[in-house]
Design a protein around this nucleic acid. Structure first.
Lengths: 258, 258
DNA sequence: ATCCACGGCGTACGGCGTACGGCGTAGGAT
DNA sequence: ATCCTACGCCGTACGCCGTACGCCGTGGAT
């Protein structure tokens, strides 16, 4: 299981792989394995078939090498996933964004949503331990700059980012679940609900939960229109930004009163 | 893998187990297995040792029966986890809360956080498919009532709940990660950061990411004080509620203008 | 010419979820 | 009282996983 790790198999080793502190062996020609080639192959598999299809054997097969050869470059599957995550972060845009803090935060939210849509496996990859790779650090720095100089303390800046990114991840997860469900059952979200509705009505003694029934139906119809997760993302994002603007306004008022 | 399911092995079967549409067998005395006993044993294991320790063999062993006997009552591990989730939802308080909508939503957020703290495995249990059990439905109804009659549309009510519960889950996950890390490495969060700091400084050419370094240090010190996740939860919750209050105020102004 | 460090990998082990088929018996039908 | 059958129970086995271990062949330094 990727979620289980041996008790800290040496921080130096893990970080060294993340930061690629390793001269390119260049010993012979041969298959010419490398951490980068392994990570690229692994990401391709996870992108195409999901994290469950990611197997050390599959990765080795894709590279045309024996299974255990992969372990020459990567201590284990957990560490491989760590590098995959950091590598994916490296793809994200880093260009400075024009506009006020709200426009910048919104841009960041959408960039992160796009990342999760391109690599849905990331939603299930990050476990217990923070990754601390170079690209995550660069991403963190870039995103912090979006909320720098608007009067927040350092701790508040971190908290704002955590809040926004948490919302993006939640919304991305919800959207990803719909996609997964369709792929696994072969039915659209609407069809799935329709196939369950009769059973639900049977079990649910009519009128037991009037509010849930009414609102669930309303939200369900929206799902049927293949529109639910996007709405939840947009609605939540605006609410979060509204909430942040309250603090920002407070800080601004405190700094230059009158 | 718990995250992989066979393509809809019959909705009726899954829902029947969730809703316990099954007369109590009461055939003989024997071990007297039942869905409830199985679920209780499974939850006990997951509470104590985490989701990775939850194994069909472990569950059977805890009940003093053969492994395959469990499959008489539950079609597979995925469905067992579904029932565990719905059962856990059944523990939550349902009492009406006094106060305005904000107080009610806050109460709901804290109740959900407490649930995740009592059953951290829930943070990793819900996958692709919604559970649709009786207790989830009751919970949904109860929580909707907190935001009913404040001028929101049905779809907005659902979105508000999704937003708040999403934030709770994100914050709970962050808190849980800290706990897991401590259990797995035997170090406190602060010790872990200290052990990694020298390496990070080595790799990070000084001054490359000034903002990240400064803010990361500030946030890290807070972590050292075993205070980070709680702060993120509280800060984010207030921001989210502030953001919601903007819509609520808008709706109120629209309904009775002047 | 020699040596050996190291990349590559074949084999094997323990653990997982679960398909399948058999067994004993309780309870209704006769 | 007897039979039959449905069902709770479960032993065995299969195919997957991650990965420990130790062997090989070889390129580069000596």
């Amino acid at each position: 299981m990727a979620s289980e790790r041996k008790a800290t198999p040496d921080p130096a080793r893990s970080l060294a792989i993340l930061w690629r502190t390793r001269e390119p062996t260049s010993r012979s020609a041969g298959p010419g394995l490398s951490v980068d080639r392994i990570v690229r192959a692994a990401i391709a598999i996870a992108d195409a078939e999901g994290l469950d299809a990611l197997t050390m054997r599959r990765v080795a097969e894709a590279l045309g090498v024996g299974t255990m050869s992969v372990y020459t470059y990567v201590p284990g599957k957990a560490e491989l996933v760590d590098v995959m995550v950091d590598t994916a972060y490296g793809e994200m845009p880093r260009a400075a964004v024009a506009g006020d803090w709200r426009a910048r935060l919104e841009r960041i939210a959408r960039d992160n949503l796009a990342l999760y849509q391109r690599h849905p496996w990331m939603l299930r990859a990050e476990t217990t331990r923070p990754v601390l790779g170079p690209h995550l650090l660069a991403k963190y720095d870039h995103e912090l700059n979006a909320v720098a100089d608007i009067g927040l303390t350092d701790v508040e800046m971190d908290a704002v980012l955590t809040l926004v990114l948490g919302h993006v991840k939640s919304a991305a997860r919800a959207a990803s679940e719909v996609v997964d469900l369709e792929r696994e059952t072969g039915m659209t979200d609407g069809q799935w609900w329709q196939s369950h509705a009769p059973w639900l009505e049977t079990f649910m003694t009519a009128g037991s939960y009037p509010t849930a029934a009414r609102v669930g139906t309303a939200a369900g119809q929206q799902h049927g229109a293949a529109y639910g997760p996007e709405y939840a993302f947009e609605f939540g994002l605006q609410r979060v930004l509204d909430g942040i603007s309250v603090v920002v306004a407070e800080r601004a008022a405190t700094r230059q009163p009158g």
